[in-house]
Each structure stands twice: as C-alpha cells, then as structure tokens.
Design a binder for these strands. Sequence first.
DNA 1: ATGTAAATGTTATATTATAACATTGCAAAC
DNA 2: GTTTGCAATGTTATAATATAACATTTACAT
Lengths: 167, 167
Amino acid sequence: MYTKAENNQISVNSLIHDHKKCVTEALSIAERLCSLRGVQLTTIRYQVLELIWSSHKAVKAYELLDLIKPLQNAAKPPTIYRALDFLLEQGLIHRIESLNAFIGCNCSGHQHELLLLICKQCYEVEERPALKVMSALTEEFSDANFVTHSQAIEAHGLCAKCNELKS
Amino acid sequence: MYTKAENNQISVNSLIHDHKKCVTEALSIAERLCSLRGVQLTTIRYQVLELIWSSHKAVKAYELLDLIKPLQNAAKPPTIYRALDFLLEQGLIHRIESLNAFIGCNCSGHQHELLLLICKQCYEVEERPALKVMSALTEEFSDANFVTHSQAIEAHGLCAKCNELKS
DNA sequence: ATGTAAATGTTATATTATAACATTGCAAAC
DNA sequence: GTTTGCAATGTTATAATATAACATTTACAT
Ligand SMILES: [Zn+2]
Ligand SMILES: [Zn+2]
Ligand SMILES: [Zn+2]
Ligand SMILES: [Zn+2]
C-alpha cells in the first residue's frame, strides 16, 4: 500500500497475527476518540497514524517523512513533527525515547502506565500493562517522595521470536 | 573551579549534602576500577567524568564540550562522545535516554539494575536500586518470553524538594 | 629503538528537532 | 453572504545531537 522502508530486520509478529485488524481497530478508535474529544484527526494526522501502524516496529520521524511524501508532496519535517505531537497528546502513539522513534498505542484512551518491551533486533515493541511492576514503582516513588504520573517504562532486549531464531 | 553552565533551575540536593565527597569518591572509585580492569582513565576521560560529577543534574554532551574547552583547546564533538562512550562502557556514568544527557553512576562496578528518578524541574537524577520493581520486571520479562539484562529504568516527575517548594 | 594498538586530532556530514513567519481553509458571529 | 478569528498547514531556515572517516600522536610491550 505504502512504500515501505527497506530493512533487514526479521519481523515475526507480523506473520502470526491478523495485523489488518490491528490497523483498522486502531484507526477507528482514533477517529471515535478524536470526535468525542472535539479535536480534528485531519488527513495528514490520519495518514501518519496509519503509517505508524503499518507494523509493530518503532518508526522514526524522517522515515515517516519519506513515507508520507508520495501522499503529501509538501511534507517537510514540521509536517511530521506536528502530526506526531498531536498523536502523542491524544495518546494515540508512544514515543520510544531510547530510539527516537514512535509506535502506535494499542490501549488509546485509557489512562495507562505501561511497560514497553523493545526488541533490539527487530525493533518490534510490545506494550504490556505490567501491573505488578507499576504498583512496585508507585511504592518506590512514594518511598522516595517523588511525584509523578502515568509512566511509560522502556526495556530493551530480545523478543520471544528473535530469541528463538537465534538458538 | 570550572565554568559552570548558567541555568535557572533550583538545585537543592547540592545544598543538603557534602557533594565534594560524592565527587572525590566517584573519581577515586573510577581510578581504582580502571586500573583493576587494565583500561586507561586518561586525562580527557577523567576531566569529563569530573565535569559530569560537578552536580547531580543530567548534563548534555555539548554542555560538556563547552565546559571542557578551557581545559582542552582541541576539544570537538568526538572528543566528548568518545569519552562518554568509554565512561558508559565502564559503567561509570548513565545515559538518560529521555533527555539525551548523562549523569555519574554512584554504584560503579556493581552489576546493577536500577531506577532513575529524573526531576523534570531541576534535572537532578536520583539512582535507586528499587529491588521490588526490578524483581517484578524480571517476572514480567519471563512472562513475555523477553530476554534482557541490566535495565536502567527512567521515571520522570518532581523530586521531593521541587515538590515541596511548589506547595 | 621499534612495532603495534589505543587514543586523540581534524574535517566533514548525518540525524533529529524546532523557530519563526506566511498562507490557507473553515466555521461562528454578524 | 461577508467578516473575523483560529486552527492547520506551508515554507524557510537553523538548532541540537551524533557519527564517519581518516590523519596523527601516544603509550607501552617486545
Ligand atoms: Zn498487529
Ligand atoms: Zn525481535
Ligand atoms: Zn553529591
Ligand atoms: Zn527537582
């Protein structure tokens, strides 16, 4: 559908589930949510979200810029960064700080603290509620008199599939 | 001693503890460790480590570059990035992914998984072992068949002191 | 002293992100 | 239906972060 950035990474999750369903669900939730909130999911914002959801891999801003150019000739860095800012504000995507990259959020609209499992081989990211981790964190914050909300915690390693393939 | 980058942030921790002790301890541990490991803590590397330890605030690579220029006229970006790479490899500093910045590690030489509490107001960073968090994480990784080691987990919020001052 | 690898110097450039201001498009108020 | 205001987008330029590539110097083992 869209030109896809070349890469040598093995993508496994995309083989073993109905990814079209991920995409259509994410997009329809986004539309519903924006409508409820009275904010505009414009064409550009929608296209960026769709491109981000083209896989479960973390994707970089300038990759998105290349991908959207066929659709939006005028696209320049601010085009992408503005759309990303909007999607982040609306909780529709996550920023992976350690990669300077982005992924779709699959629990949009919920208040959420979560754990991001980032595969350093295939760059796929799994989002997990990790309730025990989050409650241990909350306790630790309290012990440290540290005040905070809604953490996204990033962990790097090998996903199940990449680890299997390795052995 | 060194020219200090101007900033408007309130620094509190530096008022309530003997920070010189932090610095001398960190530097002597670094020397001992490098010597044991047979790696060279050269002048540049030592100076960068000392500059990073000038406070408990996260410090950026180009701030370090400005700070080291009076001491090393030839300093250019690679000068700093190489020293940072070395210090990271040796576990003497941490990189704060979410800030593109660095802090001294106060448990150098230990195997460590830890929690970094990053104050979004004063940029001071507190390093905590957070054993319960880490064991919950380990369990979560195992549930997810995710393979990883030695995580540094970053959390953003207000430190105790900044939070007191606010109210 | 000589050879070798590590460290540093140097130049250039890649990558990521934002500032600043102009233009467009759409909807509410008149 | 025009005016007005504001959000979104377009456009240009540049800031901030990081690395590649190659030359030179230094440390130090033999
Ligand atoms: Zn999917
Ligand atoms: Zn993987
Ligand atoms: Zn201190
Ligand atoms: Zn603080």
